[in-house]
Simulated assay, not measured.
Amino acid sequence: MFENEALRLLVAVAECGSFTQAADRLNYTQSSVSRRIAALEQRAGGPLFDRLPRGVRLNPAGRALHRHATEVLDRLARAERELAVLHAGQGGLLHVGAFATANISLVPAALRALRDARPGIEAVPAEGPTDVLMGMLVDGALDVAVLSDYPYGLPPADGVTTTVLCEDELYVALPRGHRLAGAEPVDLGELSEESWIQSAYGDRPTMFAEACARAGFSPRKVIRIAEWSGKFGYVAAGLGVALVPSLAARAVPGTLVLCRLTDPALHRTLHVALPDAPLPAALHLRDLLRTAADGP
């Protein structure tokens, strides 16, 4: 109903107590101020100022509108400041998505470096599988995400650009008393009689299933456990074995042993995904993620 410039004019006239002084402050002519205030009063449904012999003052209706005008203008000023630091990459919210094992060390290291370099940026983390994170990027709910092509490959998405971050080797986790716990590397075929602890669901082909086929077997039993702590617990209890990415190595309990595998195809590729028009802060975090992935 009320234009921002009209509200600024109302505030200026109220502070100056004069159309003429308000005109000087805002670089208007006195007649222009009078016309604009008259138009504002028409929109407001009645006078907003008492006209005095020398100057003007707000009447009750004017005081009511003035209160709202100062609140609106203050909010707009704060929004302008927030947008300025956001577009400069120096502040604002940054919504960051990552899958579970990327949140063990890779993403936290990059976010710590971001906090140290640009303390005005507030990271808002989100965790989920790659397909969910990609959907959040498409919907605008994320500004940057770390994705994995394991186990189903990287889903395509319009309006999102992905770049390779690093390669992540896959190990097999065995209980310490396992017959192969001291052997490296382990051929996948030697584990053909084991139960496998996995979180992948559905009938889509996976890299793991393809690797098993290359080794000449199909897993005799798959136990579906989503959380890594649960997977580790099942392996430690001798109920099965599990593939574990190197990113998760520091979270593996001492009751388990990680062994390399002979199949060179058993690795995953990590990607950084950004909207086609990314925030400067998202680009900076992408660079910090690359540094964190390269390691010390």
Rank of each mutant, 00 (worst) to 15 (best):
A173H: 06
S218W: 02
T130A: 00
V132H: 14
F208M: 03
G216S: 01
G177N: 11
R204L: 09
A200I: 11
L142D: 08
L170G: 11
P219W: 05
L165C: 05
G189K: 08
P219T: 04
D187G: 15
G135A: 01
V164G: 09
R179K: 14
G182D: 13
L180V: 13
A183P: 04
A173C: 10
M134Q: 04
R179Q: 14
Y171D: 14
V144H: 01
A141S: 11
G159A: 06
M134C: 05
P156R: 07
V144R: 00
F217D: 03
A200S: 14
R214G: 03
G202Y: 10
A173V: 13
W196P: 00
A211L: 00
P156S: 07
T162I: 10
A145Y: 05
L170N: 13
R204W: 04
Y201G: 13
P205V: 08
L188F: 10
A183I: 15
H178A: 07
L191C: 05
T162Q: 08
V132L: 10
L174N: 09
G135H: 04
D143T: 07
L133V: 08
T161C: 13
E167M: 12
R214S: 13
L147E: 05
S199Q: 13
L137Q: 02
A209Q: 03
A183C: 14
M136P: 01
D203I: 11
L188P: 07
T206S: 13
E194R: 09
A157Y: 02
A200M: 08
P175V: 11
A183D: 15
G182H: 12
T162A: 14
V186W: 05
S195E: 08
S195A: 15
F208D: 04
R214H: 04
